[in-house]
């Protein structure tokens, strides 16, 4: 049975156009790496935290997958799960799009927030999810993240944000823009109280999210290969009329230009975060 599936997909592999190749791999059992195009068992890929076993490509991860691999079993408590978006600008089709993504991504909004433990260290966290409206930030995302930061302050625990977002959500217009100010202001207050802020940027982290909380960690980290930047590549190319280097706006590019503390492989992420949390908690004291 397995062999059959394998053979079938292999046969098709040579004949279909590149961008459709991925669909030919039987979903669930086998996955084709976006990076090196090699086919591997989904089970093994998931076991390796969705990092390709051959080329190290970091495949996108849903918020709940990230919670599962990063937080100690049974410690994650989600907050504000039922907070949902409204349509403040009466934007055409917005509510329908939200509904569609709620069904598709099985989450109510583009960020999951909560309190959980990483190797025993309790943190308040916000984990963005690019499966929902490209992880874009509207009023709900801004409010949930702001509450998660305030919660970190109340509980005197560190705040870790995992970003994955195309930027501000167009359909909420200037209200989305203002969420940048709101979240940044919450971080400033938390920071003044001595709170530790860690930003872990994952693919993609761009626009208004990149230009607010994602860049405001005491420690700014990123996953390998993640696209991180303010303006879109196409817009920059059109503006300056020059071709950009291939690695432009990747995590590695940012590291080279002094914009990141470190690039952290997902397979080493839990360990790295634990070490950082440990060093910031001398004698078990928080903040």
């Amino acid at each position: 049975m397995l062999k059959e599936l394998f053979a079938k997909s292999k046969k098709k592999y040579a004949t279909v156009p590149l961008d459709r190749e991925k669909q030919d791999v039987p979903e669930g059992i086998m996955t084709k790496c976006t990076g090196c195009k090699k086919i591997m068992y989904t089970k093994e890929l998931v076991k390796n935290k969705k990092v390709c076993l051959h080329c190290g490509y970091h495949h996108p991860m849903s918020s709940h997958e990230r919670i599962e691999f990063l937080f100690d079993a049974g410690t994650f408590n989600e907050f504000d799960k039922e907070m949902i978006s409204v349509n403040p600008l009466d934007f055409p089709d917005y509510l329908e799009k939200l509904e569609k993504d709620r069904k598709k991504a099985k989450i109510n909004e583009a960020v999951v927030t909560g309190v959980g433990s990483i190797n025993g260290y309790q943190v308040s966290t916000a984990i963005m999810d690019s499966n929902f409206r490209m992880g874009s930030m509207g009023s709900v995302v801004g409010e949930k993240i702001t509450r998660a930061i305030e919660r970190a302050g109340e509980l005197k625990i560190p705040f870790i944000i995992f970003t994955a977002s195309g930027g501000a959500r167009m359909q909420e217009g200037v209200l989305s823009l203002m969420q940048m100010a709101k979240t940044s202001a919450a971080l400033k207050i938390f920071s003044n109280e001595g709170g530790l802020i860690i930003s872990m940027m994952t693919h993609p982290t761009t626009g208004g999210v990149s230009a607010s909380f994602a860049s405001l960690g005491d420690i700014n980290l990123a996953e390998p290969g993640a696209l991180i930047g303010f303006a879109g590549r196409r817009i920059i190319e059109q503006t300056i009329r020059e071709e950009l280097p291939e690695d432009f706006q990747t995590a590695e590019f940012l590291l080279k230009h002094g914009q990141l503390d470190a690039v952290v492989k997902r397979t080493e992420m839990k360990e790295t975060l634990t070490t950082i949390l440990k060093i910031h908690a001398p004698g078990g004291e928080w903040l």
Partner: peptide, 21 residues
Amino acid sequence: AFPGKAAEERGQSEAIAKNLF
């Protein structure tokens, strides 16, 4: 904010974020 190569290299996102903060 200017969308350019140099602006990105010098941290356009960080500069804006830091001002908000």
